[in-house]
């Protein structure tokens, strides 16, 4: 250590200069600070293509859900968060359709296995939505309408 370090005070003065520079720079250039004021300002999501966000159910061209209630997603789901109740489809060529399709978002682990399992490409996680919070448990169970009209 040199004399200046031994005396301690000159180095302290130097250090105070550094912190003061940061303080003044940040005070005078507040908009250039790295912090993003999150709920007010949102960072554009530069997510990769395969980013798994909130689920959505896809529709056919006539507006009916693509889902045929085959239960593969519910079977694949490790968190057991998909609850499907099937009913007979009015269309002759399609056997079943979902009467109820609930995803319990409180249980979902966002693994994407439901998307992998689906043979009809009816469920996807490509919405890019990650703000999943609400004030009640009930509102976090998404039903078929919520999932279709994402």
């Amino acid at each position: 250590m040199g004399l200046s370090e031994d005396l301690y005070l000159p180095e302290t003065a130097k250090a105070l200069g550094i912190t003061l520079r940061h303080l003044v720079t940040n005070l005078t250039h507040q908009s250039e600070m790295p912090t993003i004021n999150y709920p007010d300002v949102k960072r554009p999501l530069n997510a990769p293509e395969r980013y798994r966000g909130r689920h959505r159910l896809l529709k056919r061209e006539d507006g009916t859900p693509r889902c045929v209630a085959c239960m593969l997603c519910a079977t694949a789901c490790p968190a057991v968060c998909i609850h499907i109740e099937a009913e007979e489809s009015p269309t002759k060529t399609i056997e079943k359709r979902p009467m109820k399709f609930d995803i319990d978002m409180l249980r979902c682990v966002f693994c994407g296995l439901c998307v992998e399992a689906c043979p009809c490409d009816a469920i996807r996680m490509d919405t890019g939505k990650y703000e999943l919070a609400d004030t009640s448990r009930k509102s976090m169970i998404f039903d078929i309408d919520t999932l279709l009209n994402h």
Partner: peptide
């Protein structure tokens, strides 16, 4: 606030 601005926070 002083500590925040010294440490580049808000």
């Amino acid at each position: 606030r002083g500590s925040a601005f010294i440490q580049d926070r808000r």
